[in-house]
Design a protein around this nucleic acid. Sequence first.
DNA 1: CAGCTTATTCGCTAATATGCGAAATATGTC
DNA 2: GACATATTTCGCATATTAGCGAATAAGCTG
Lengths: 102, 102
Amino acid sequence: MRKTPLKPADFKPQAQIFKALGHPGRLLIVDELSRGERCVCELASMVGSEMPTVSRHLSILRNAGIVEDDKRGTQVFYRLMTPCVMNFFQCIKSLKGNAHSP
Amino acid sequence: MRKTPLKPADFKPQAQIFKALGHPGRLLIVDELSRGERCVCELASMVGSEMPTVSRHLSILRNAGIVEDDKRGTQVFYRLMTPCVMNFFQCIKSLKGNAHSP
DNA sequence: CAGCTTATTCGCTAATATGCGAAATATGTC
DNA sequence: GACATATTTCGCATATTAGCGAATAAGCTG
């Protein structure tokens, strides 16, 4: 029961979430967080980037509502807020082989 | 049974797909294609951009394996290859309200 | 408080994405 | 073949993103 035709702007919130996931390093982070919470330094060593870089990635994921942070002492632990993100990984596997280079 | 730790590069194919979906206009296209195939000119008028722009968006979606094209006469019809993309829209709705501005 | 650790914010540069109009490529019509 | 329609490719200007090191903030420990 939609009254008016949808406009691109109507998809901005969803696009923000996809955009947040559209980065290899951030996907690695999400995959890792699907197995439990991790602090920034752990994630940084996994991703192989400097901590400022990873911290920025995490803020992008947090702004998108995908992860949540929890400060305990000097360290900050992040955890995945949306298990359904992982479901989509399965969906993607089915077409992974089709993807071509730009 | 994973032998070596995952690296960001391992998520490049998946990231390409998320990146392709990380744009309001392209999401509108995907949403429209979920209701049936459409030609480029139909999509262009829906999105409200020039045809070259929409054509580029479609090539991005095609390279990611999300849509497929079918040339019939002078026009080219696109159709959605992954219904599961729409499932993720549901998942996203649950956290849409949490998303903040960058 | 000094010093160490962890994390975020800030400037900056390089790379990438976006969108348009012009030009090129079909395909169909007269 | 000339011409109209539908689409893609190209070239360019602008905007956004990525990543680093320096600087900053906050929390422990001695």
